[in-house]
Nucleic acid binder design. Structure first.
Lengths: 259, 259
DNA sequence: ACCAGCGGTTCAAATATTAAACCGATAGAT
DNA sequence: ATCTATCGGTTTAATATTTGAACCGCTGGT
């Protein structure tokens, strides 16, 4: 396997709740040799992708990431242009809302707003990576990509996150028809216990799916009335963001055949 | 040299003014073989650090950068906490202001606000990398790092950006005394023609310099009156940001001896 | 005073990286 | 309509880099 991939994979161990990691621990987490991790991290540090806490020598994500994110956002302002739409979703639903972009085999969280209306709410970690098979947003994406792609995306071993996670690829695939019909993917406690997720797809200019917007609620608060209200909010938001990003939703019925 | 370093170096060719680059051209720019660049870019794309425009197959920076930047900013909100101070600087000076973080051998632009008061203003590219030896901010940093570090930072070949760029390390080093005395680094047209720069250092909690804030003005507009006004604004901003980030300015006179 | 764990270094063995030639496809010029 | 140059991408044998076990000195807890 590539060295570059190994180096980049190390960055994924950092999160909002775990912003600093020492050398030995990182090596343990990643399953690489300590010397290897040191060399990789040194390379990353030389380019500013990570930096070291001078006191503890622990690593944390570096300033180069801010710089590069800034460049991307300057030429492709997805986050900024979606923000008012997310805010409207948040205000209308009162629940935690989030915006995800479709990566190679997972979703990248690029923005979210936590629930304002309830003391009990769904919390999110900044910059989480979300699996396709165990989230409403993931299902929304899978449902709208070419079937072959979806099949290969689900071909590996599917990790179970809760008792409710569906790890059988064919069962997931058979759900997708319904997602396509309603335009909304819905799933209960597949990624986190007690969290109910609903999401809709966002499309690029060529009609392919590029991400998803969704609402995350405590499962205990979900009623049919709330669900249908949430569906409306999500459908509107997904279509607004698609438009804001210069995308177009494919004609219904045409999309599965897209190669 | 490391493969990881090569891969990461490719990301630096993307900028606000050049957000998408094709394979062959990137290979030419970087001076690497096309096959090599392809492999490296594929590795980066697999992790979402770059993505390909499906139409043109050109590369652009990817969504993973947004995600990781989000994580860093969530646990170390430097940009957010400095923003009001930058805004005040911008309002008070009427000129373009910027905030840079010190990386391994250069500065990373993490935020800026372009001049509001003048039609002729200094424009900045989002996410530029700035050399230490050819910018006021760079001199501000060099002046406040341990002398040995500054000397090694200037030991390589110093690139000339304009006719005014000083490329002689010892001449730069001898300027630094004055920077330390006044707390402000100042330089005319060292990085871009017609741009006059002034900047002050930002310190970390251990008293080491971690970045700089500065003002960039068209050289033609600089007067002594403006300079002394700008110095005041910068000194205040630098000290406010240092404090906002939990840093402390070292005692004057003690800092050069810090090892 | 000890021990366990830390960050970091070393070097021979193992493995991944490289670059030139080549491919089919595309687009502009003649 | 045909040529030509360039594109993105693939293959190969030759090569340079990566790897990991053992080891270092150091620090903090018992």
């Amino acid at each position: 396997m590539g060295t570059v991939d190994k180096a980049l994979s190390l960055l994924d161990f950092f999160s909002e709740s775990r912003p600093e990691i020492g050398l030995s621990e990182l090596a343990r987490m990643a399953g690489y040799d300590k010397a290897t991790v040191l060399r990789l991290m040194t390379a990353l540090a030389d380019r500013g992708f990570v930096e070291q806490n001078v006191k503890t020598r622990d690593f944390r994500l570096g300033p180069a990431l801010l710089r590069l994110a800034h460049i991307r956002e300057a030429s492709l302002p997805q986050r900024a242009s979606a923000q008012p739409i997310l805010e409207r979703m948040s205000a209308e639903s009162g629940e935690t809302v989030h915006l995800l972009l479709l990566g190679k085999n997972h979703l990248e969280t690029i923005d979210f707003i936590e629930a304002s209306a309830h003391a009990m709410r769904v919390y999110m970690d900044a910059g989480e990576r979300i699996p396709l098979h165990a989230s409403a947003s993931g299902l929304a994406c899978l449902a709208h990509m070419p079937v072959e792609e979806a099949r290969t995306a689900l071909s590996g071993a599917l990790r179970s996150y809760t008792d409710h996670t569906i790890t059988d690829a064919s069962r997931i695939l058979s759900h997708l028809d319904n997602v396509r019909k309603t335009g909304i993917a819905e799933i209960d406690q597949a990624f986190e216990d007690g969290v109910y997720g609903m999401a809709g797809p966002i499309f690029a200019s060529d009609g392919s799916v590029t991400g998803a917007v969704g609402i995350a609620t405590p499962s205990s608060r979900v009623t049919d009335a709330f669900r249908s209200k949430a569906h409306k909010i999500i459908r509107k938001a997904a279509s607004d963001i698609t438009r804001a990003w210069g995308g177009v939703a494919p004609e219904a019925g045409n999309e599965e055949t897209a190669a």
